[in-house]
Amino acid sequence: MFDRAELAPSAERKAAVEQAWTNLTGPGPTLTATTRCSVIRAARAAWAGGSSPDAPLEDHVAHWVAVDAGGLRSDHVELWAAAGLKRITYLEIVGVVSRLANVDFYLRGLGAPVPEIPPLPSGSPTGDVHQDARITDGWVPALANLRAPNVLDAMPSEGVAFRGLHEPMYMPMDQIDNWRFADVLSRPQIEFIAARVSFLNECFY
């Protein structure tokens, strides 16, 4: 995956991305591996400038999460639910496209090609959905109010996968309140990047 990278990954982030890719292209809590890979294709096509596919609905949703998540409204989610997309499956699509963004943007940033989708993805949905999940202060099932990085915890394995990227890429969660945190970057450098990305993506969370 990183053989052609112009800038070498850290060992920790390399392992996180490889694990994330294996997870993304396998079966999820409500989606088969085939459907997750179709969602990945739809998101990549959206980033390549393609128009939104009308069907299947999972790919249509993936397109909009990829290119305009900040423009999504509760009305969209309700419309998709009325068309048959369960809220928990919508949440899984959000999780897949979001983690894919982390993987693909990281690789592109390093000058490496994005990985190719397996030719014959296989695997039935795992059913790994928390039975206590319910709508809280957002649009999707959750175990508590939606706070980063626990937004996928209605599906425990997806929550773990999300944090498996977030911590090595951002910082250890036990350091979040340490405003003097520094490694090869200072905390102000880290937070400037985070704030600028969020501004450009019109994410006001």
Partner: peptide, 11 residues
């Protein structure tokens, strides 16, 4: 890269 993920997830 990870804030590309965070932004899409939270929104």
């Amino acid at each position: 890269a990870t804030f590309q993920m965070m932004n899409r997830a939270l929104d």
